[in-house]
Computed example of a mutant assay.
Amino acid sequence: MTADAVETITPDAAVEGKSRGTVPAARHETFTVDYHLAAPPSTVFEAFADTPVRRRWFKLPGRQVSYHHDFTLNGGETASSVFTVPGAAPERLAYASRYLDIRPGSRIVYAYTARVDDMPRWTSLVTVELQPHLDGTHLRWTEQAAFLTPSAEPEHDFPHLRGATRLRLNGLAAALGQPQGSSTTPVRM
């Protein structure tokens, strides 16, 4: 067994002393994106809370898209779509989150899982902090991700997640009717 694999033992196999095989170990990454928006924290917060506004900036790629959003403590969001790339089989994408902490105008904490073809690719804990800053809001997005099932190119999994977060925040700025916000380079911790 390599350092990158974990042995999985089924209950029946444990009794017989047999293992079913190995699965890759989860890889963990943390990053932070600081972003400035030219809107007060209360307006930025509402862009997370108000479902029609959220639909303008939080999107899954593809067709056959469905969404459900319950912005309450212990509520959450589900989204699914079918994503097609020329020359490849369609992928079924799914997102499911649960809100763990909601502080109006200042903080949102949630956990989510991203699935591709019913396999959990990664799960994350996200903290979004909103602070008044000069002419708007300083948004700090901190995400702690556990990559559970690597893609065909696992070296791209973490950069893909970071890049998608930056694009999502650019979409947030557009949904608020402003040019792309300014951000610092995501920092690995």
Rank of each mutant, 00 (worst) to 15 (best):
A173K: 00
A145V: 05
V23P: 03
T32N: 11
P86C: 02
G177M: 01
T43P: 04
L176D: 01
F48K: 06
R56C: 08
L161Q: 12
H68M: 08
N74T: 08
E46T: 08
P24I: 01
A89C: 11
A49G: 12
P52W: 06
F158H: 02
F45H: 15
V33D: 00
E77R: 04
T165A: 13
F147E: 04
D117K: 10
G105Y: 09
R168S: 10
S183V: 00
A114D: 09
R166M: 06
V23L: 09
T2W: 14
G87P: 07
A173L: 02
E143Y: 02
G163C: 10
R20W: 06
V23C: 01
A47P: 01
G105H: 09
G177E: 01
D12P: 14
T10D: 14
Q64E: 14
Y112C: 09
A146W: 02
V116D: 08
V85H: 04
T149H: 09
A3G: 15
A88E: 12
S81T: 00
A38V: 08
R168T: 05
Q144N: 12
T43L: 09
E46P: 04
D4V: 02
F48E: 05
E155T: 05
V65N: 10
G181H: 09
T43M: 07
A38N: 12
P120I: 00
R98M: 06
H69W: 04
M119V: 15
D34R: 13
T149S: 14
T113M: 06
T127S: 14
A3F: 07
A145L: 07
P154Q: 10
P61K: 11
P154S: 12
F147L: 08
V126T: 15
A25C: 04
E155C: 03
P120V: 01
Y99E: 04
L93E: 00
T78D: 11
L169C: 04
E77N: 10
R20I: 08
P159I: 03
E7N: 08
F147V: 03
L167E: 08
S81C: 11
T72L: 04
R54D: 00
R140Y: 00
W57F: 03
A47M: 01
H133V: 11
